[in-house]
Design a protein around this nucleic acid. Structure first.
Lengths: 222, 222
DNA sequence: GTGCAAATGTATACCAGGTGCAGTAAGGGT
DNA sequence: ACCCTTACTGCACCTGGTATACATTTGCAC
């Protein structure tokens, strides 16, 4: 099943990424060249790019594993549970388990890493890019399992993924500010519950005034 | 007030951008180098970068004008009108007026341009980046004028901006597929109204099942 | 008008990310 | 032992973007 080749490949992959992250954390993403990473990992620049399509991926490839997480959660939810409830509970589980993806993990290296992602535009951009895939996958899952039109599914997926991201960033920022995960936990839960409630119940009840309709349709002025 | 210098600067700015867009539309964004753009615009490469911080901005700088549009709409809404209603009506106005930002403008060059932005990853990425600013501005506006907590404002801003983007892309795609703006209009309006209703009323009523709570709190497994 | 400081533009060289190519070493199935 | 696929390397090359040092224009005070 797992031949020597595969194992070796996996080890090289990890070795390069680790060397890269160590250097990045030490000197900053922008102040380390891929050539230096390659040298530190004892690989040629060409080989590095055979493992990672871009410099940013040396860091952000870990996010790729979570691309389909939301979609899987929705598909795997027990019968009778709404997709939103499943997603909310999954996120709350993540908080409880200090899953790094929720931003609520205070292992120093994780803190430093998420901070770097937050503060380095190129990395944030790349991370956001992965979310588009997550959105697509989630939209599909919603459409197939929740019997909902495509447009609704895509809108909902965008909102869920966006919410997830915002919550994670907030947590990670709080931890970067010195709070421990345990200290932050209660607020993280409260924020998450608030966010998912908002998703579920809509903005109308929370933005004070309601949706009102216009008295007259204005003319088209072209 | 507007000295000769400023006017000349504005003209150069426009000239470079136009030369760039013409070339990009002709040969594709990735197959034109900035050096070629500079040559076509009869400027040095260095000067080009004095006007545009990055290659992508040669195209997407037009989006920058709309960065604060949502925020302005919210701030400028007449008393008694909810922020969401103001945003929805503004978007519907945009559709009616075939505002390019809504994606519902079938002037050939605009279609080609939005298609290029949609299909070129670098451009999409850059455009998305501008939305972050839009989100921040809108969040501020919501917080200040709708008396809502910061977290709520930021979540709402993200959802609104994301919705706006999705609707625009859908319209632009439909038009790229050959539909005229007039043909697409009715569906564009229906989609927009559906999307804003979703925002207002929440997902609960639309994803079939409601938010349910768990019977027992699972143990934390760390 | 004249002259000058500031702004603007240019040429050139340079750096870093990323790719194409041609060749070499090494697994692994037969 | 065989060969073939795969992995890796070095090197040249392209492109986006920046630094430096120099030339030109322009607004403006006089």
């Amino acid at each position: 099943m797992t031949g020597l080749r595969e194992r070796k490949r996996a080890r090289t992959h990890a070795a390069i990424s680790e060397a890269a992250i160590a250097l990045f954390l030490e000197r900053g993403f922008d102040h380390v060249s891929v050539a230096q990473v390659a040298e530190a990992a004892e690989v040629s620049k060409r080989t590095l790019f055979a493992y990672f399509p871009a410099k940013e991926d040396l860091v952000v490839h870990r996010f790729a594993d979570h691309q389909t997480e939301a979609a899987r959660v929705v598909r795997a939810r027990p019968p009778g549970v709404g997709p939103l409830a499943a997603l909310r509970d999954h996120f709350l589980d993540g908080l409880r388990n200090r899953d790094p993806i929720t931003g609520l993990n205070d292992v120093p290296e994780i803190i430093a890493l998420t901070r770097m992602v937050r503060e380095t535009p190129a990395l944030r951009t790349r991370a956001v890019h992965f979310q588009e895939d997550a959105e697509r996958a989630l939209a599909e899952a919603l459409q197939e399992t929740a019997g909902v039109p495509a447009l609704t599914a895509r809108l909902a997926a965008g909102q869920v993924v966006g919410t997830h991201w915002l919550l994670s960033m907030d947590n990670s920022q709080a931890l970067a500010g010195g709070q421990s995960a345990d200290e932050r936990y209660a607020e993280a839960v409260a924020d998450a519950e608030h966010a998912f409630t908002l998703l579920s119940e809509g903005l109308a009840g929370h933005l004070v005034s309601q949706l009102t309709t216009r008295a007259t349709e204005p003319q088209r002025s072209r």
